[in-house]
Design a protein around this nucleic acid. Structure first.
Lengths: 257, 257
DNA sequence: CGCGCCATATGCCTAAAGGCACAATGACGG
DNA sequence: CCGTCATTGTGCCTTTAGGCATATGGCGCG
């Protein structure tokens, strides 16, 4: 336990730098024995990206991206459910045929007998999957519990890294609404207002683009009353009471960058 | 030990925000029993600043700043040695006469029997001192050791906060309350909207700063009707019809720079 | 002197946002 | 199963912004 503090301090200091992922791996694996690590990015709509590995073979990376990702139960889980958190391989209630192929084919060839994924939100419909792998012994429940306890720290570190890098979330095309028709719509970074749900972010995007409530209702196919409800909920979460304060918060965020 | 992870995640997420110091206090005191907390900033050349306290008295704050800081052994240590880290009161190899006065005078009046300082670099010749205080029992060596182990994490968090704020000197002034009271008001460049009169520019400044019509009327000593007239005139000149379009025009002007 | 601009004021009405309460449904986790 | 959250909906009321018209006085300019 005492050897967690140094990797933790390093991971904190490394947010926003190129060392972030490496330090995050060090932290996650600090007192969980493992034989190798793979880091992959999953999207709900695109093929996975292989980010990094430790003690894994480049040949197996190539095979994964060529073929085996199709059978990857973690990837399938992300596409189906978008679930974040600690995910042990043996808990994936996946299609048994696919999981069988993943284990018999890919994992066996990689000499992996068990795997646990740490799925962290990565902006948009992407997640970052950091996988600890074992060659001979399976992960114990106590080890999974340890990772579960520490998950909020991993998530906070990764969120901070995204924020420090200032990546934008929405990329919208040109709007064609009546009234306010700006040439350039405000983009809301993923790191801004993390307490908002996806729907609420959609609402905020339209509000900040200058659309009045009735127009937003039309666009989203909901009633004016529902838009008002969302507005109230958003204002509550952001501790404001008016639309103009929303503009100001956003303006301040932009001014701080 | 399991209850360190939630405050740790919160402290990570709070870096660069107004909540940083509060979350840092929560983290430091998470499983170290204490009765009250004081947070002070020391410079090698200026008088101390009292940043924040928990369960301490405003009267004692006043007395400290009026008089007792002169006898503060932590302050003296900082001025003399600039030493950072975990500093228990009983380890301060200070002038015994001064330490005696601090304990007999200030600490006794505050009903504090022991104190440990966590001294973090704060930019320039300043440090941030977060002090855990006990009223009845002294801090144990094992508790000090625990803080020593965790110090790199506290340091990394605070360094990250400084970096995120982009300031050489960290300043924790009173946070602004909810509502439209921005830290930084929009400035309207002279080249923007040259068709506006001086008075109209004054109005726009206040509108963009988030003030509603009634508030603007009060500030300028005119009636609500007059403010509305000005609004109408401004909107005519800028070929818009609503306040939100004014925000958008301004926002676009800023985005274009 | 007349005109236009600016700043200020009044009155009335409409549209829209905000405030509040309540309700239903589905998904998720303990 | 229960509680929580997100999403959607309804209704009623109040507050505020916007729309429109009119008026007055001061100032500068042709």
């Amino acid at each position: 336990m005492a050897n967690i503090w140094a990797p933790l301090a390093r991971a904190i200091a490394a947010t926003g730098t190129d060392r972030h992922v490496d330090c995050l791996i060090d932290l996650i694996g600090a007192d969980i024995e493992h034989d190798l690590v793979t880091v992959t990015r999953y999207s709900a709509t695109q093929t996975p990206e292989f980010v990094k590995h430790r003690r894994f073979s480049d040949e197996m990376v190539r095979r994964y991206l060529d073929n085996y990702y199709v059978f990857d139960p973690f990837y399938a889980s992300w596409r189906r459910e978008r679930r974040l958190g600690i995910m042990p391989l043996k808990r994936l209630a996946d299609d048994e045929a696919k999981r069988g192929q993943y284990i018999a084919g890919f994992l066996a060839q990689s000499e992996i007998c068990d795997e646990v994924g740490i799925m962290l939100a990565d902006g948009g419909d992407w997640c970052l999957g950091i996988f600890l792998d074992r060659s001979t012994a399976s992960f114990k429940d106590s080890e999974i519990t340890l990772l579960d306890e520490r998950l909020p720290v991993f998530e906070a570190l990764h969120a901070l890294d995204i924020k420090a890098r200032g990546r934008d979330f929405f990329r919208t095309s040109a709007p064609t609404g009546p009234g306010a028709s700006p040439r350039q719509e405000p983009n809301i970074p993923a790191s801004l207002w993390p307490e908002l749900s996806l729907r609420e972010r959609e609402l905020v995007q339209l509000i900040l683009a200058g659309h009045p409530t009735a127009n937003i209702a039309d666009r989203l196919g909901i009633t004016v009353g529902t838009v008002k409800n969302h507005r109230r909920r958003i204002y509550e979460k952001l501790d404001i009471t008016t639309e103009r304060e929303l503009f100001l918060q956003f303006f301040q965020h932009r001014a701080d960058r």
